[in-house]
């Protein structure tokens, strides 16, 4: 990371600490804000948060790695998550998955070359009555057919 970027990151985290407080209980909101903006939590950010919250960097890494929606490595601009839990599975998740993989030319767990989309599976989204469900960033799409899924993907930038 360049020095300039580091300074910007420090400033950003200082602001977040001001917003959420410097207690450990502020950790998740801070991480969530960084994740939302950068799509991942860089090494340097983790250490800066550790410094400002007076905890150890490994504790930050430990927390990030615990939660499925936080990550330490860059991902695509959009994260597309397909529910893999039973009712979505029975409602035809497999066909949707295949269609998406074919269309984007990547497998689940991978990111498109243009960095536009990262594909992931996710556990139950709470849309079991309307499966298969797709979560694009924080927006949820119910009753996704293969065709509809591709349409959704084509609309995201």
């Amino acid at each position: 990371m360049l020095l300039l970027e580091k300074n910007a990151m420090t400033e950003e985290i200082e602001l977040l600490v001001k917003k959420h407080g410097n207690s450990r209980s502020a950790l998740l909101p801070i991480l969530q804000d960084i994740q939302r903006k950068h799509k991942y939590i860089p090494d340097f950010a983790q250490q800066e948060i550790a410094r400002l919250l007076d905890i150890h960097p490994v504790e930050i890494y430990s927390v990030i790695s615990f939660y499925a929606f936080l990550n330490t490595h860059p991902k695509g601009r959009n994260i597309v998550r397909l529910c893999q839990t039973i009712t979505c599975d029975l409602a035809g998740k497999e066909n949707v998955a295949k269609a998406i993989e074919r269309e984007l030319g990547i497998k689940f767990g991978e990111t498109t070359k243009d960095n536009r989309i990262t594909l992931e599976y996710v556990n139950c989204l709470g849309m079991c009555d309307q499966g298969p469900a797709l979560l694009v960033n924080e927006r949820v799409y119910p009753k996704v057919s293969p065709e509809k899924a591709i349409q959704i993907l084509n609309e995201i930038k």
Partner: peptide, 18 residues
């Protein structure tokens, strides 16, 4: 503060920062 548990479930392991 070198060691903590990272990841979860069956992937849980004791590890260092990153």
């Amino acid at each position: 503060g070198v060691l903590e548990a990272v990841e979860r479930g069956h992937n849980t392991r004791i590890s260092t920062f990153l």
